[in-house]
């Protein structure tokens, strides 16, 4: 760093330590200790009262044959499989439209962003009623155009896709804004030059727009993945993880094991594997998506 020399020589070392000391204490207590303790906890059975019982890799062995655990992983993948494409495509379409001279552009941007700022709990309480099979207004609207009632959150096959739709509705505004920023970074002249060379709309999109928004695309993928593996309050409020565990998420399963069954070691072990999956997926996304395009 340039220029830190002149008056900083005296005292700034001490002052530096003083200023970072709150962080060091914070880190030791709320990051380092839990991190180290998690490596102890995953090898034990513990109900939080009473002694810890060492079980070696017992928790991981149990997890391996625990069909509910695997169900929660599959549920998360189902969620991501619907949520990510839906999110990317619809956010990109809306951003592309907003990236023009259009009246009331600021209003639309603000409108799309509103669900992003409101509480997930409130959004879920609201959607629980919208999703109601017999009397919900979603099914009323479908009924008007002659489509049969959809058992949004009462049918195991529909419940997770419904949560994915709701989560997309809630988050999309953020991605519209991010894509819009990416699109606006493309110089107009590039499109004009391409037009002179005879490129059509699809070619312009593929060879100019997509490379420009690639960093945003990677970020959307990563944030969506993190979101998928953090899913908790939506299934907790909407379905309680049901019907038939079809919306049980990884974090909800941790919560259930820890606070319904008081199995801290097993819950920590589940968290441990989820963290590994998240880190691996995010690293792969960074590597491949960034290189490919």
């Amino acid at each position: 760093m340039p220029g830190i020399t002149v008056n900083n020589k005296i005292g700034s070392g001490r002052s530096g330590y003083m200023l970072v000391s709150p962080y060091i204490i914070f880190f030791a207590l709320f990051v380092a200790y839990p991190l180290i303790f998690s490596f102890v906890l995953v090898f034990h059975h513990w109900s939080i009262v009473g002694p810890m019982e060492f079980v070696g890799l017992g928790n991981f062995a149990e997890m391996f044959s625990d069909s509910v655990y695997w169900k929660s992983i599959i549920n998360t993948l189902v969620f991501l499989l619907i949520h990510v494409p839906l999110q990317v495509v619809s956010a990109l379409v809306l951003a592309e439209i907003l990236n023009r001279k259009i009246p009331a552009r600021a209003f639309f941007r603000a409108a799309f962003f509103l669900p992003v700022v409101v509480s997930g709990v409130a959004v879920t309480v609201m959607w629980k009623q919208l999703f109601s099979t017999d009397i919900g207004i979603l099914n009323q609207m479908l009924g008007m155009i002659g489509i049969n009632r959809v058992p949004w959150i009462t049918d195991p096959a529909w419940a997770m896709p419904s949560i994915a739709i709701m989560a997309t509705w809630k988050n999309i505004g953020l991605y519209v804004v991010l894509f819009l920023a990416g699109l606006q970074s493309v110089p107009r002249q590039l499109y004009e030059a391409a037009e002179i060379d005879g490129a059509n709309t699809v070619q312009k999109f593929l060879f100019i727009t997509v490379p420009a928004i690639n960093p945003v695309l990677v970020m959307v993928l990563i944030l969506s993945t993190l979101g998928g593996f953090s899913l908790f309050i939506e299934p907790y409020v909407l379905t309680g993880g049901g019907p038939m565990n079809s919306t049980l998420s990884g974090v909800l399963y941790i919560y259930r094991q820890a606070f319904s069954f008081f199995r801290m070691g097993y819950a920590a072990a589940i968290g441990f594997t989820l963290a590994l999956i998240v880190l691996t997926v995010v690293m792969l996304q960074r590597k491949y998506v960034e290189q490919e395009i």
Partner: peptide
């Protein structure tokens, strides 16, 4: 710490 998934430390943090 920015890349540390919260699922890892959730239960140990509760124990703390």
């Amino acid at each position: 710490t920015m890349v540390l998934p919260f699922q890892l430390t959730l239960i140990p943090l509760y124990v703390l």
